[in-house]
């Protein structure tokens, strides 16, 4: 099975001398098509940096990054931008919606950037907003949406170009319990539909939505376990969450 995302000997350092920080230190990871991987670890262990490197948002100091069979770590910013728009969807803790654009405009933006016609892009964006339950809020600016709604718009935006992989950085980190449940249900549904997911999180409930969990500490992997039936299922966690 060839990985949708593959990193080999990946390293990213900040500072030098005594102040050298090994944010990512010689990491290898392969994520298979349709696999949902969750990366956990304490704050500052390098999870977000790894995610940025995997998505081509940052350049590694050493190692290789492969997305959908293409090596991206040495390509130009322009090439990486095009690769991102076609193959990668991002979801951030702080949503990072464009405040100037309405919900539907935010969602259709990657499609427009990818060169789809505005009609096609709008149709796809509207369908995705329906899927995340926000069709009524399509014309709202982000300031008129709740945190959970913003994150659902961000997820719809990440999916608009049918990416090979969706990378999510603490997607429930800024949400209250109810909104967290909404988002986790969405992730659960995506996993069930075979969407490849890589999620960085502290949240155990988020971890329960994955097939595999990678533990990270001081820039390196300390565990990599498949989440089998003995782990509390996502459904159980979500049910428990909704009773709270």
């Amino acid at each position: 099975m060839s990985g949708v995302v593959r990193v080999v000997g990946l390293a990213k350092h900040y500072g030098n001398g005594n102040a050298l920080v090994r944010a990512v230190d010689d990491v290898d990871l392969e994520v298979a098509t349709g696999e949902a991987v969750v990366i956990t670890g304490p704050s500052g262990c390098g999870k977000s940096t790894l995610l940025h490197l995997m998505g081509g948002l940052d350049r590694p100091d050493a190692g290789e990054v492969w997305i959908a069979g293409r090596r991206i770590d040495h390509t130009s910013e322009r090439t990486r931008a095009r690769l991102r728009r076609d193959n990668v969807g991002f979801v951030f803790q702080e949503f990072h919606l464009m405040e100037e654009l309405t919900a539907v405009e935010n969602v259709e933006l990657p499609a427009l950037l990818a060169g789809r016609s505005s009609r096609q892009a709008r149709r796809r964006a509207t369908a995705l907003l329906e899927q995340v339950g926000l069709e009524r809020q399509a014309g709202h600016l982000p300031s008129a949406l709740s945190g959970g709604q913003k994150q659902r718009v961000a997820i719809a935006r990440a999916l608009v170009n049918e990416p090979a992989v969706l990378l999510a950085d603490e997607p429930t980190g800024s949400l209250d319990s109810a909104a967290t449940i909404e988002v986790l249900r969405l992730f659960e549904r995506l996993r069930a539909n075979g969407q490849t997911l890589v999620v960085v999180t502290h949240d155990q409930r988020t971890a329960a939505t994955a097939d595999r969990m990678v533990g990270m500490r001081d820039g390196a992997f300390v565990e990599d376990v498949a989440l089998g039936p003995e782990t509390a299922s996502a459904a159980q966690i979500l049910t428990a969450g909704s009773r709270e």
Binding site: L57, R78, A81, D86, L97, L109, L113
Partner: peptide
């Protein structure tokens, strides 16, 4: 920040 977000979505530097 907006441009950085646009670039994560696939906008090129140009």
């Amino acid at each position: 920040r907006l441009l950085a977000v646009a670039r994560t979505l696939g906008a090129t530097p140009a």
